[in-house]
Amino acid sequence: MLRLKAKYRITSRFAFFSVFVGFLFWSFFLDSHSYIAFKRHEKELKQLKRVHEQHRISIEKNRQRLKELSENNGDLEKYARERFYMKKRHEKVFVVMEE
């Protein structure tokens, strides 16, 4: 009888261990909230934060440029001519492209 209990004790330990390993495998690799998915989302979040910071800097530069252009009409005309190739009547504009 004692020998029979020892046999069941070993198999029950093995069963608990198997269930525990199976649970860890499931939670780390197969679940929708797995560790791999967590790392993937964390990487994506870091990338989105970098893009957000770049856009914030770009917006700040554009606000500064808009402020400068609204204060001085000479700069506004220069900016329009350079950027949008605007011209006055009876004026010819030549655009030189570098190769």
Rank of each mutant, 00 (worst) to 15 (best):
I36Y: 09
E68I: 10
K87A: 08
W26P: 01
E42I: 02
K5R: 15
L48H: 07
M97A: 14
K92N: 08
L66I: 03
H33E: 07
R9D: 15
L4G: 04
E91M: 04
A6C: 15
R3Y: 09
K5Y: 15
V51L: 14
K61F: 10
E42R: 00
L48I: 02
E60L: 08
V95E: 05
Q54N: 14
S27P: 02
F28Q: 07
I57F: 13
R50F: 07
H33C: 05
V95K: 11
V96T: 11
K88Y: 01
R56F: 13
Y35W: 12
R56S: 13
L48P: 00
Y8D: 02
F28K: 06
V19N: 09
M1W: 06
R63W: 01
M97Y: 10
R13M: 07
K87Y: 14
E82I: 06
R9A: 15
K92T: 13
A80F: 06
N62W: 04
F20G: 08
R65W: 06
F23N: 10
T11N: 13
E82S: 12
K49N: 09
N72A: 02
S70D: 12
E99D: 15
I10P: 01
K7E: 10
A37Y: 00
H33I: 02
L4P: 00
K7A: 10
F25M: 07
